[in-house]
Simulated scan of single mutants.
Amino acid sequence: MTLTLLDANGYGRIVRENGEIQAIVEHKDASEEQRQIKEINTGIYAVSNAKLHQWLPNLSNDNAQGEYYLTDIVAMALADGIQVASVEPEQAFEVEGVNDRVQLAALERQFQSYQAKQLMQQGVHLIDPSRFDLRGNLTVGQDVRIDINVIIEGDCELGDNVEIGAGCIIKNSKIAAGTKVQPYSIFDSAVVGEDTQIGPFARLRPGAQLANEVHIGNFVEVKNTTIGLGSKANHFTYLGDAEIGAGSNIGAGTITCNYDGANKFKTIIGDQAFIGSNSSLVAPVRIGNGATVGAGSTITRDVEDNSLAVERSKQFAKENYPRPQKIKK
Rank of each mutant, 00 (worst) to 15 (best):
S185D: 07
F274R: 10
I169T: 11
G97M: 06
R13C: 05
V293L: 09
K329H: 09
S185M: 05
F316C: 02
E319S: 13
A233R: 07
E213G: 00
V74Y: 08
V192D: 09
I164A: 04
D302Q: 06
A64T: 07
T2C: 12
A202P: 02
I152H: 08
A202V: 08
N263A: 12
G217S: 08
G19Y: 04
I198A: 07
A79W: 00
D72T: 03
I327K: 14
I299L: 05
R203T: 12
D160W: 08
A77M: 14
Q34E: 15
I24V: 15
S313L: 10
G296D: 10
A295F: 04
I268C: 05
S113W: 01
A262G: 03
Q122P: 03
E88A: 12
T298C: 12
P129H: 02
D302K: 06
P284A: 12
F316E: 08
C156P: 00
P322S: 12
F236W: 09
N224I: 01
E32S: 12
A8S: 15
T2E: 02
V293R: 10
F265V: 01
T298H: 00
T267M: 07
V74W: 03
G251P: 13
N61R: 11
A190M: 07
S86R: 02
A233P: 11
